[in-house]
Simulated scan of single mutants.
Amino acid sequence: MGTMKEFKEFAVKGNVIDLAVGVIIGGAFGKIVDSVVADLIMPVVGMVFGKLDFSSLYIVLGNVPAGTGTALADLKKAGVPVFAYGNFITVAVNFAILAFIIFLMVKQINRLKKEAPAPVEAAPVVPEDVLLLRQIRDSLQK
C-alpha cells in the first residue's frame, strides 16, 4: 500500500500536472504551427520558387512497377523507396518557426518576470529572560 501512496503523491505534485498541461498545449500548438506552415507560408515560398509544392518533391530510389502512378503517395503505397526531401523541407521550416515562436515567448516571459525582492532579514529573537534583565537594569538606572 505504501507504493500506491507514493505514486499518488508523485502524480498530484504541481510539477507533474504542469508538465502534463504543457504537453497537451504543446500538441495543440504544434497543430497550429503545422497549419501556419502548410497553409500560409509554404504556398508563398512555393510561389516564389516557381509554384513548387515542396511536399511533392522527391527522388525515386528504386524501380517503379508498371501501372504505378507518379505521385509520392502512389509510390509509397507501392513500396517504392523514395527520397522525399520536400517533406523534410516542410518539416524543417515547421520546426524553425516553432523554435522561433518559443524563443520569443520565453524572451517575453523573462522580460516580464520581475526580480524577486531580497528577503528581509528577520530581527534576531531576544530571549525573554534577557528582555526582563534589560527592563530591570533600565528601571534601576532611573
Rank of each mutant, 00 (worst) to 15 (best):
K13P: 00
N15F: 03
N15I: 04
I17N: 07
D18A: 14
V21S: 13
V21C: 12
V21R: 06
V23H: 05
V23E: 07
I25Q: 05
G26V: 00
G26P: 04
G26I: 00
G26M: 08
A28H: 07
F29Q: 02
G30I: 08
K31E: 11
K31P: 01
D34V: 06
D34F: 09
V36M: 12
V36W: 06
V36F: 06
D39H: 07
I41A: 07
I41S: 01
P43F: 05
V44P: 01
V44A: 12
V45N: 12
G46V: 10
M47D: 06
V48R: 07
F49S: 11
G50K: 10
K51V: 02
K51C: 09
L52K: 06
L52D: 09
D53K: 14
S55R: 14
S55E: 14
L57V: 08
Y58N: 09
Y58D: 07
I59F: 13
I59P: 02
V60T: 12
V60G: 05
L61D: 09
L61N: 11
G62R: 01
N63A: 05
N63T: 09
N63I: 00
V64H: 04
V64F: 08
P65G: 03
P65S: 05
T70S: 15
L72H: 12
A73E: 15
D74V: 01
D74C: 04
K76W: 03
A78N: 07
A78R: 04
G79A: 03
G79E: 04
P81S: 05
P81G: 13
V82S: 05
F83M: 07
A84P: 10
G86F: 03
N87T: 14
N87V: 15
F88Y: 10
V91P: 00
A92F: 08
V93I: 15
